[in-house]
Design a protein around this nucleic acid. Structure first.
Lengths: 228, 228
DNA sequence: GCAAAAGTGTTCATAATACACCCATGT
DNA sequence: ACATGGGTGTATTATGAACACTTTTGC
């Protein structure tokens, strides 16, 4: 700080707002809830919560995610700070956007229902409250960016999965169709998947080999997966 | 927010800390100042300031930059939120890191001196207060990342500059030596520079053509400049 | 003439993309 | 037998990196 003392500064309300992405039936979805406090009661909102004095913003984000889905140990990432003084008509709130990508099948549906939350298809979302559209757009952009460099979301798929399933996940994230042959070659060239001897015959007559993840550590930012 | 009311939440001190990078004599530098309040009075610190209730964090960052350098209209970018409860021994402060890249020759040296600030070579910096080392490391990483996709810092150079000058700037940002031939070809292939008819003869006997920037708008993220 | 920076050209390896084509099998 | 998704191979093009080589001119 340039010169002012700590005790004469104005304090602010600080919150987190989480873009919780989920994947189910080949579709990328976002968890939203019907806001139950004024202002804008009943309208759609990202999942958020206040930041307490004795915790980091990351901790607040994890707390919010757990409260709504029951999930812990999910990677979350900062998206950015949103702090226009008038962004929340209810008062001055500085919010930190966070991203999470979860397996819809794994979360606690009772909690989601209790809070009036719902999963929405990400394509076409545009009527959230406040500046939540902006936060969501930036979150999606960041998810795509990350997915272009890292193999994301393997924990969203079953333990054993086919390359086609990975491709469908990527199709849903990027809203485009990747070439089956090229995508397969690219993913396998990363050397992070191990082919099993079992086959999945539910999607094709020939059957597709199952793969599993070896480990996550050493994927570098140089190994670009898809070009965006 | 999931359910709590606005008026019972705890408010926090919010600050910005800016990594102000400068370029001079072929060297990348960082503006730091000797902190003049307790705790840690006298130790080296990033340039920071408090966020007021009626402004965005971006506004606070611009305000701080102007206060210390006199400069306005400088692009600044969020680096991230740093919010460990104990990060500042003086009390709970949530800080937002910001980046700026300025031309050292253009700033107001009197202001810098008045606040006890100094320019330090970025290579080897490691003894800042609190978590400022972490903020600085992330800032430098972000600067490099951005410079790998966009032609940054052209306003740091004279109006008319040689390709060699651009390369030296990049050498200083990445702390490595780019191949003169390849760098030249890559930069010129972006089609954002226009060759002038004048030559600079101060650096070589043959003389090097001056170039100037055409415009900044349409550089896309696909046009990678250097691989990191 | 020579050193030194400016600038051009060549080669090699790698990677993205498009797309042809074979494989296996349930119906 | 044939349609369908699985999987492989190939041609094309673009790009990065290494580096040889040519140009210019002050000394």
């Amino acid at each position: 700080m340039l010169d002012q003392k700590y005790d004469v500064q104005s304090k602010q309300l600080v919150a987190v707002d989480c873009s919780i992405f989920g994947y189910e039936d080949g579709i990328l979805k976002l968890l939203l809830f019907h806001r139950n406090i004024e202002p804008s009661r009943g309208k759609l909102s990202l999942v958020g919560g206040w930041v307490n004095e004795d915790e980091s913003v990351e901790n607040a984000a994890f707390r919010v995610l757990k409260k709504l889905t029951g999930l812990t140990n999910i990677a979350m990432e900062q998206v950015g700070v949103f702090s226009q003084p008038d962004r929340d008509p209810g008062g001055r709130v500085i919010t930190v956007g966070f991203n999470a990508l979860i397996n819809i099948k794994m979360h606690n549906k009772d909690l989601v229902q209790e809070y009036g939350a719902e999963w929405f298809n990400v394509s076409g979302l545009s009527n959230l409250i406040f500046d939540h559209n902006e936060i969501f757009e930036k979150s999606l952009e960041q998810l795509r960016f990350k997915a272009s460099y890292y193999l994301v979301g393997l924990d969203l798929l079953p333990e054993k999965f086919t390359i086609t399933q990975v491709r469908q996940l990527y199709n849903s994230i990027f809203q485009r169709k990747f070439d089956p042959g090229n995508f397969r070659k690219k993913i396998l060239s990363l050397n992070v998947l191990k082919r099993l001897n079992k086959k999945d015959s539910s999607e094709s007559k020939k059957g597709a080999f199952y793969y599993e993840f070896i480990n996550s550590e050493k994927m570098s930012i140089n190994e670009r997966i898809v070009k965006i």
